[in-house]
């Protein structure tokens, strides 16, 4: 294995690790909102590492740019979706 391939493999493994950690959090955390923390943050980092690995694998600036754009949009969507789910998961509190 060349050093480049080794690096790509390590990045892929890191990405998979964070996806797995996010899923473990989803199962283990005590309530809906805590579970959302695990999903948004860990999965984004997982995607980031996998995008980095894919970019290095192809070694093309345009493809790297496209992957970066995908990651940015996914980041944005995850942040927004987390807020919407978090808001929907709030139990209606009795007022007055």
């Amino acid at each position: 294995m060349s050093p480049g391939e080794l690096l790509i493999t390590a990045l892929l493994a890191l990405g998979v690790f964070f996806y797995a950690a996010g899923t473990v959090g989803l199962i283990r955390f005590p309530d809906t909102h805590s579970r959302l923390h695990a999903l948004t943050k860990a999965d984004n980092l997982g995607l980031g590492f996998i995008v980095l690995a894919a970019g290095l694998h192809w070694g093309d600036a345009w493809i790297a740019g496209k992957l970066a754009l995908i990651w940015l949009l996914a980041l944005f969507a995850a942040g927004m979706a987390a807020q919407l789910v978090a808001r929907a998961a709030l139990k209606p509190e009795p007022r007055e």
Binding site: H33, H37, T40, A78, G79, M80, Q83, L84, A86, L90
Partner: peptide, 18 residues
């Protein structure tokens, strides 16, 4: 506000719920 909430949700330990 929505962008701040989204950002908050990605920073360590915090999550915005509207």
């Amino acid at each position: 506000r929505a962008l701040f909430g989204a950002e908050t949700s990605l920073l360590p330990g915090t999550l915005s719920a509207g």
